[in-house]
Amino acid sequence: MATPVAGQPVHRMGTPAEVARACVLLADPDSSFITGSVLDVDGGFLAGTALPPS
């Protein structure tokens, strides 16, 4: 079980694998139509809305 993180909407820190999957998504040739976008891989931190505890 991940240690809860105060102020983090998903209540945990992200893992390197989760960030890597976002990189793989953007590097995939099937994503070639995605341009000029910012993909925040932050578990909702910038959105600032907490999810209910699971």
Score class of each variant (00 low, 15 high):
34 I>K: 00
19 V>N: 04
53 P>Q: 01
10 V>W: 01
49 T>W: 01
26 L>P: 00
9 P>T: 08
2 A>T: 15
29 P>M: 04
13 M>F: 07
53 P>S: 00
7 G>E: 11
36 G>V: 00
35 T>D: 15
40 D>E: 13
54 S>M: 05
17 A>S: 04
13 M>V: 10
3 T>Q: 12
4 P>Q: 09
35 T>E: 15
45 F>L: 11
11 H>P: 01
20 A>H: 02
11 H>N: 10
27 A>L: 14
3 T>P: 02
15 T>S: 04
21 R>E: 13
51 L>I: 05
44 G>R: 01
34 I>R: 01
13 M>W: 11
24 V>D: 12
41 V>K: 05
26 L>F: 14
31 S>F: 02
9 P>L: 05
18 E>H: 03
9 P>A: 03
11 H>L: 08
9 P>M: 08
52 P>C: 04
9 P>C: 02
48 G>T: 12
12 R>T: 08
18 E>P: 02
17 A>N: 04
8 Q>N: 10
5 V>K: 12
19 V>R: 02
46 L>T: 13
8 Q>A: 10
51 L>P: 02
39 L>W: 15
41 V>N: 07
28 D>P: 01
53 P>G: 00
12 R>N: 03
44 G>T: 06
54 S>V: 11
46 L>S: 06
20 A>V: 05
21 R>I: 00
46 L>K: 15
15 T>F: 00
13 M>Y: 11
19 V>C: 13
28 D>K: 01
47 A>W: 03
48 G>P: 04
41 V>D: 07
37 S>C: 08
13 M>P: 03
40 D>H: 15
28 D>M: 02
